[in-house]
């Protein structure tokens, strides 16, 4: 089964002034799979996502999309490739309804007027493909619950025939029932053929829906593993010390492990 990754990050470096935030980072995202991106606070998850989505330029390394090296120098470039990011703050406009939110900034027009009918149809089709039935299209965003807001933000990302969707902590701050629904939605995105990146601190969320796990440790890729090959405690070790057994960034045998790590 040699499925080609949809998105490959190879040897990416990124510094802010003197601080090197990413060093030789690698990550593969496959179509039809959820890749969990895990790491401690400050490990570089958000920076990596911003490099992939064109917000930060990379200093070195390569982003390969669908087998072609690409330069993503703005979020527009990322969107043109089919890479969408759903950030934690969800950025929905409370005074606009669901359809307007989903098309915000990318409205369909017929002549000089907005093509409401087409937009409504597309929004409806997208929500139906994700089995979302609990909301009405003309409902203002202000009336949505946290879980529904997350759902609409995800649906908005899927609307554009996107191929890779990156979700930053989609279940943070949700109640139990809504967390379950959002996790099922994340899984459905991948089962529909998208490449999904799930950033999460919650190991149950990671193990519940992911096929692969990429662990970052202090700005480096500690390991890329299949979820069917590791245990909870191994992943926790990758996150906290960068290696587990023979997997990961093995400590230099000459030095005391942990001594120079967080300088």
């Amino acid at each position: 089964m040699a499925v080609r990754p949809l998105l490959e990050v190879r040897g990416v470096d990124k510094s802010f002034g003197a601080v090197q935030v990413l060093r030789d980072v690698a990550m593969n995202v496959f179509p039809g799979e959820v890749t969990a991106l895990v790491g401690d606070n400050g490990a570089g998850k958000s920076t990596l996502v911003k490099c992939i989505s064109g917000i930060y330029p990379i200093d070195a390394g390569q982003v390969v999309f669908d087998g072609r090296p690409v330069t993503v120098s703005s979020p527009k470039d990322a969107a043109a490739l089919g890479i969408e990011v759903v950030y934690q703050d969800l950025a929905l406009c409370d005074n606009l309804d669901i359809v307007s939110n989903m098309f915000l900034g990318r409205e369909k027009r017929s002549g000089i007027a907005l093509d409401e009918a087409t937009m409504e149809q597309m929004a409806h089709r997208t929500l139906a493909s994700l089995s979302v039935r609990s909301v009405s299209l003309r409902q203002p965003a202000a009336s949505l619950s946290g879980g529904e807001r997350q759902t609409i933000a995800i649906a908005k990302a899927v609307l554009w025939n996107s191929r890779v969707v990156i979700l930053d902590e989609p279940t943070a701050a949700l109640g139990v029932a809504q967390t379950a629904q959002v996790l099922e939605l994340v899984r459905r995105l991948a089962d529909n053929g998208l490449g999904v990146v799930l950033i999460s601190h919650n190991m149950n969320d990671v193990f519940a829906v992911s096929d692969r796990i990429t662990a970052l440790y202090l700005g480096r890729t500690a390991a890329q593993v299949r979820t069917s090959e590791v245990t909870h405690s191994q992943v926790v070790e990758l996150i906290t010390v960068g290696y587990t057994g023979s997997i990961g960034l093995l400590p230099d045998p000459g030095s005391y492990e942990g001594m120079g790590g967080r300088s």
Binding site: V176, A180, L183, M203, N204, V206, A208, T231, H232
Partner: peptide, 17 residues
């Protein structure tokens, strides 16, 4: 369903072992 989603790390770990 609810038990699995809330305890998936442990379900998977035991399965993988």
């Amino acid at each position: 369903r609810d038990v699995y989603l809330a305890a998936a790390a442990h379900v998977r770990s035991r399965l993988n072992e």
